[in-house]
Design a binder for these strands. Sequence first.
DNA 1: TAGATTGTTAATCGATTAACAATC
DNA 2: TAGATTGTTAATCGATTAACAATC
Lengths: 205, 205
Amino acid sequence: MKKVPEATIRRLFYYYRCLKNDHSESPKYICSDTLGNKTGIKSTLLRRDLSFFGHMGHKGKGYQRDELENKLKNIMGIDQQHEIALIGAGNIGKALVKYKKFRELGLYITEIFDNDLDKIGRRVGGYIVKNVKYLKESLEKNNIKIVILAIDEEESDEIITQLQEIDIKAIWNLSSAQLDLDQNVIIIKEDLCCSLGSLICKMNN
Amino acid sequence: MKKVPEATIRRLFYYYRCLKNDHSESPKYICSDTLGNKTGIKSTLLRRDLSFFGHMGHKGKGYQRDELENKLKNIMGIDQQHEIALIGAGNIGKALVKYKKFRELGLYITEIFDNDLDKIGRRVGGYIVKNVKYLKESLEKNNIKIVILAIDEEESDEIITQLQEIDIKAIWNLSSAQLDLDQNVIIIKEDLCCSLGSLICKMNN
DNA sequence: TAGATTGTTAATCGATTAACAATC
DNA sequence: TAGATTGTTAATCGATTAACAATC
């Protein structure tokens, strides 16, 4: 099978969410034009995206809603629950713990770590913030393979060194730190400062 | 002058931040190889990016640090302060108000709005949450042209209609709502659910 | 059969990389 | 002058779009 492009992967979620949120249910089928309009993605691109995963539609009819929703869920791996560890119990970290929509996707933050003694031991969204020095031990014990990194730059070096020693599969990096880990750890970087900065820059250019 | 590519704009901020945070100052010049390594961007791409804005470097020497930092600041438009309005005083919104790094860039959230009566009137990070029905009035009065949208999906339709009537320049859309506004409003969408969802999807593919 | 719509192939567009002449 | 490094041009890569044959 051909390699699925990065850009396609990012769009799968939009298709999925649109189907999930659209409870009008009644027409059993939805065509690429309709789903494309709702998600703001051209229908031809949508069809191409979906075709990477085999024949998902029905010629002359469109895509069967339930079927497509379930297939997408399965492809994205959110048909099962995932436990996630959060490193950094600052403002952003705390907001993420309380963010309901992750849970709707079966994504649960069940461990919270920080290196700030003021934060360790406190309760955030029902979980007690642990000392980051127990990170490795705790992730291995609970078999957690996904990490959200929401630390401040100042704390980063120490924590990045620790991360290198743990067998994790994926990191959602919300910090400004640049991670140079093992090739086979999936990393998505979401740099809020950079994003807002780009907005101002675009305004100016 | 040639149109600056989207991708270039996003990278300018990395170059800028790297220079700003690197207080080792001592060598007056930094070459594209060094700055490229620090930011994780190939030096040839970096040079191409910068060249869109004229001759920024000095052949045989590299880029003069202060000069480049200031030019970038000027190009991005963060050499002056910007006031920003936040719509949505939920978990994410509150975290953004308290986020120090925006202020370091001269970006200040000075108005906060919500449509939830429980939130209106409360204080978040020193500012009182206003009723979103005063949005237009308040932004015009204070001449605010930049909006951060951090609302829940449920509230979105009403608020988006309101946004259409206001003369704003840029929106940083952290909600899952799809905005179809005037062509000349700059919009950057940062969809946290989609981003974390893509991470799980990449793990699976 | 006629109409609708998918899935695929080729063409286009945009972004990155490689190569290197210009020049400090 | 020799070495270093920029800025630019051409080549490559990857993503989107247009066109359309296949088929329900």
